[in-house]
Computed example of a mutant assay.
Amino acid sequence: MTVALRPELPALMVEEQVRAALTEDLGRAGDITTLATIGPEMTATADMRVREAGVIAGLELARTTFRLIDPAIRFETLVADGDRVAPGTTIARISGRARGVLSAERVALNFLMHLSGIATYTAKFADEIAHTAAKVCCTRKTIPGLRALEKYAVRLGGGSNHRYGLDDAVLIKDNHIAVSRGVASAIRAARAYCGHLVKVEVEVDGLAQMREALSASPDVILLDNMGPDVLREAVAVNAEHWGLSGGDYAGDPRRTRLEASGNVRIETIRAMAETGVDYISTSKITMAAPTLDIGLDISL
C-alpha cells in the first residue's frame, strides 16, 4: 500500500505570508510596547503549549515569524505538522533576545492557532468516515489570501483538497447550467475548451439531471443537497450506467466519481459517506473551524 507523504508548504510562500502579517502588525513604528519596556540585552526562553487536544499545523510559519524578527532566535520544534497532541503538550521552545520573542509572539500564534484549528476540525470529519472509502474535501470558501495555507491545514487533518481556484478545474454549477441551457451541452463545451489534463465536474440537483450529465461523461458529478436515500440511488444509477456491480464499482477507473455536498455537518457526514459516494465537500472545515488554543509562556 502506498503511504501518502505529509504535505509541505514552499518556503517562498511561507515567507511571503509571514512578511505581510508582520508588516501589518508592526505598522509604522514597530512594537512600541516592547521597545519601551525591554532592554536590547535582555533574553528570554518561552514554551509554546497547546491547551486542548488537536492536530498541529503551521509550525514553519511560526518559525519563519521569529526568524524574520530576529535571525538569532532559536526555534526548536518538539512535534511536527500533522501530529495529534494532547492538552498541555509543548510543541515548540523559543529562546533568544526578548524583544524579538515578544514582538513575534502574536503573529506566530495567529498562524498556528488558525491553521491548527482547521486541521483539528477537519480531523473530526475525517474520523467520522474513516471506515468508508469517501474523502472529506474543502471548497473555495476560504479567507482571501490564506487559501493555500488553509488547504494545507485541511490535508494535515486528513481531508482532501478540492480545486484551488477558478483556473485549475472546471466546476459547472447551477447558474452556469441556467445560462448555457443544458447540462450535457455545458459539459461538452467545457471539454472542447479545456485541455485534456483539466478535470470537468458538474453540479446536479436531481437524478434526472444526473442521467443527462452521465451521457456526456464528466469526471465528477456533484450531488447537491441530497439526502442519504437519494445519494444511495445516485450511486446505483452511476453503477448501472457504467455496467458495474458489487466489487467492480469502487475500483473501476472508467466510472464517473460522485461528490456529495450541501448540509454537511459532523452529525450527517457518516450517513452520507456510507451511501458509497467518493467525496463529500464542505465549507465548514475552513469557514467554521474554531481556533486551537495555543499559548506562549515565558520561562526566562
Rank of each mutant, 00 (worst) to 15 (best):
L26I: 00
T268M: 10
Q17L: 15
A236Y: 00
G295V: 02
A44V: 10
L61A: 11
T291C: 12
V154F: 06
A184G: 12
V107Q: 07
R140Q: 13
P40F: 03
L59C: 08
G58R: 09
P290S: 07
A21T: 02
R254Q: 14
R188L: 15
E60A: 11
E203G: 05
A80P: 03
A134N: 10
E105H: 07
R191F: 13
T64C: 14
G195N: 06
I221Q: 04
E267A: 15
M1F: 11
R28H: 09
T275H: 03
S185Q: 14
L258W: 07
E203P: 07
E274S: 08
R265N: 08
A20Y: 08
P290C: 07
G165S: 13
K173I: 07
A289C: 11
A80G: 06
A53Q: 14
C138E: 13
A119Y: 02
H196K: 11
E105C: 09
L102K: 04
S180D: 09
A62F: 05
A169N: 05
D248A: 15
K284I: 08
M226E: 02
V202I: 15
I269N: 02
K151E: 04
N238K: 01
D205R: 15
A271Y: 01
T90V: 15
S116C: 10
H241I: 01
P87V: 09
S283H: 06
A178F: 00
N225D: 04
T77F: 00
A184N: 07
C138T: 14
M48R: 00
V50S: 06
V204T: 06
R67Y: 13
T120F: 00
V3C: 05
V198K: 08
A169F: 09
T43N: 13
D297Y: 12
A186T: 07
D168I: 08
V107T: 15
T65G: 15
E24D: 12
S261K: 08
S299F: 07
H162A: 08
I91T: 07
V18A: 01
R63T: 11
A178Q: 12
S185H: 05
G206W: 09
R140H: 10
